[in-house]
Design a protein around this nucleic acid. Structure first.
Lengths: 193, 193
DNA sequence: GCTAAAAGTTACAGACCGGTAACACCCTAG
DNA sequence: CTAGGGTGTTACCGGTCTGTAACTTTTAGC
């Protein structure tokens, strides 16, 4: 009995994909391994043959999610080849689409909130992946010819992070509704300096 | 055997205070009622005589936290009586202090992340409290004579929300380190319009 | 000091959790 | 056809969770 998410493929892939989806929707501590394997059309033993623990599965899910996000950057390059400023606007646009399409926020940020233990193995991974994403945005701003590239990138990061978490508290009609306007006027303001 | 948090006071107050602290530090799903009552120097039965369920306790904790935050607004008024712009700068300063003092973010936002069930009773409360806070900041911006008060208030909200969640992912050396600079230059920019 | 309410204590129910053992099955590579 | 690895199934372990029952002790008001 497979659900829509998991077609007939290798159990490991189905588990990974299903776990990503369920962790995202219900939170890491809100879903157990039994529920994941059942939704993936397999069983707990098979999960533990492929992942040595739930924590390992969590980490693999975060890596997979980050890899997906990373592929979006390639789209920007494909859509606006060489045009770094165009890619920055595409980033804003894509971020806005993300906000409209989904109100459960960023998996990595959510995981950081849920896994409050300072020494949880996933925290290293979260920090690494988030730092890599930050570096990408800084580079994009710099290549777009913006002077204070780090400051703009960090401001945009905080705005998006805030919008994604705000969605979860007050919904889509809250402050996050103005994200595009904020981001665009920020970019314009930094370009004018 | 009482710990530092809970002096000799009524059990209900000790439970509430201890629960606030532990929910904040370890997350709502990361701490059980037994652990709370033990840290509060009491027991589970007493908790359930004062709160009809853990969910009710969660809600009461959120209300108490919001009430504490609300009292900070009174400080602003006391420190800068009549000077709304000074109060806005005090808000930025206070937000920055919050970021430095604590890296577990906003209890309400964290609760919204953890309690992913759309119909969880705490979600109504979270939304109400967050909307009240937003309204306060909008009023402050408006009274400070800023034209696009809602937009500035929402931008500042998202920046702070983002900074508080970013702290939990990448730590205090990440984008949140620039919060004050971002906020101040935003205020300056809005005032110049 | 008596009484009644509040609080403490112990034990338990029922569910879920992460993780493992033992064994049967199937499917594919040789 | 056969051997072996991947997979499915069932049962279980020890622990933790929210919530309750029944009973004893302490506290506070009169």
């Amino acid at each position: 009995m497979t659900d829509g998410v998991a077609e007939r493929s290798r159990p490991r892939d189905r588990i990974l994909e299903t776990a990503q989806d369920m962790f995202h929707k219900h939170g890491i501590k809100g879903v157990g391994v039994d529920a994941i394997t059942e939704a993936a059309g397999t069983n707990k033993m098979t999960l533990y043959r492929h992942f040595e623990s739930k924590d390992e599965l969590i980490i693999e899910c975060l890596r997979a999610t980050a890899a997906k996000a990373s592929r979006i950057w390639d789209e920007f390059e494909a859509q606006h080849p060489g045009d770094k400023l165009g890619q920055l606007h595409a980033w804003v646009q894509k971020a806005s689409e993300l906000l409209s399409a989904d109100s459960r926020g960023c998996d990595m940020a959510n995981a950081a909130v849920e896994l409050s233990e300072a020494d949880h193995p996933a925290r290293r991974v979260i920090k690494e992946l988030k730092e890599a994403q930050r570096e990408k945005l800084v580079m994009l701003c710099r290549d777009a010819g913006i002077g204070q590239a780090e400051l703009l990138a960090d401001t945009l990061s905080l705005l998006l992070e805030g919008a994604r978490v705000s969605m979860q508290s007050v919904g889509s009609e809250g402050p996050s509704a103005q994200f595009v306007r904020m981001a665009e006027s920020l970019i314009a303001s930094f370009r004018a300096r």
